[in-house]
Design a protein around this nucleic acid. Structure first.
Lengths: 194, 194
DNA sequence: ACAGCCATGTAACTTGTTACATGATTTT
DNA sequence: AAAATCATGTAACAAGTTACATGGCTGT
């Protein structure tokens, strides 16, 4: 979903061709957003289909035989809307680690405690790695990279605190009664029921 | 990716049929993980294709004409691996809000400051909503729901702190020189270059 | 009969992702 | 000629998502 808008923004900065967009993306968004080159082309073709970008005619091509693309007014509008619309963080409610804790309890193969400890080890490892990178970014004075790393580190800290909270609640979590299997009768429910 | 494992875990708890898995999923993982019913069936058919679940023969069906599924040993193995493998939080490096900040600067349509303020308003709103829900969950004594909400709230707080950090760096961010457009020559690069 | 839910499925679409094929160009 | 890189593209697949079609069953 974001690749589409990255390409639009870059084309709004300057018309380009496929490979150039690919390297521009790495230059501006950094390694973490790097994608497969092929995806640039498939995304471009979708954007062209939707009239958000247009292929420059050969007559305007000073640049040999590369396929130059430019953003259209419709594309600008689409981009602007995306930029103005704040991102909903609701998806955080769909936390995979939470799902693992619950599902491990359901299956019984692995105890929630094991899941929790494994995740904690992982977090420690990642925090350590990112802190290292953070130091390097500081010396390199790379402001974007610093911000990306800070964000990630802050979220890792939040994760860690949350795991502590989970650990305290583990007994309670395991006491949660298993869901009732209610094989509902078919057909229209009786009047009183909802 | 997680729906697959949710179904496996539920089938490891007890053999079920499609619709039952759907309601079991809501009962155990909550509304935030609720999915379209159709997805249960399409995921089940992939799981069957991969031999992770099997359809019980009619002879074993006490339950009329429903298609009962059960997990296979291969499925158990697949599930166990997923549960044991800690989740990498690396994807946090791919932060969409960060991308918006940078891309708004690139396109020039919307200022990074506007993006930032819009996001801050959104965060305040969501924090408020979740805090409300958190109070309700507390009275309902719903331990799972409490944990989900706590996690989300903690991450929202991290987001907020990060936005403050970004605001302080906005001038620096906007000073970042635009990327150089280097139209590289084709062909094999000269010996000295990499 | 029919309303309304149970139950299963499929078709269409989106985004992401990788692997591979194909030329063109230029240095070795 | 061979190697290496630029440049464009396609095929295939995974996973998510919605909309819709189709029966079956049972209160009203």
């Amino acid at each position: 979903m974001s690749v589409k808008y990255a390409l639009l923004a870059l084309l709004d900065f300057t018309p380009s061709y496929g490979l150039q967009l690919h390297s521009l993306m790495e230059d501006t968004l950094g390694d973490s957003w790097s994608i497969n080159v092929g995806q640039v082309y498939s995304t471009l073709s979708r954007l062209e289909r939707d009239k958000f970008v247009k292929r420059l005619p050969d007559s305007e091509l000073s640049d040999e035989d590369r396929n130059m693309y430019a953003i259209t007014p419709e594309g600008k509008k689409e981009l602007e809307e995306w930029l103005r619309e704040p991102l909903s963080r609701e998806y955080r409610l769909r936390d995979v680690v939470f799902a693992k804790l619950v599902l491990s309890h359901m299956s019984g193969q692995v105890s929630p405690d094991e899941v929790l400890q494994a995740q904690r080890r992982q977090l420690l490892k990642e925090t350590h790695e990112l802190t290292q990178l953070r130091v390097e970014a500081d010396s390199a004075n790379s402001i974007s990279w610093i911000l990306v790393l800070e964000s990630a580190i802050m979220h890792l800290e939040a994760d860690m605190k949350w795991l502590d909270l989970c650990e305290h609640s583990l007994e309670k979590l395991e006491e949660v009664p298993p869901p009732v299997i209610r094989s509902r009768p078919r057909g229209r429910p009786p009047k009183g029921e909802k």
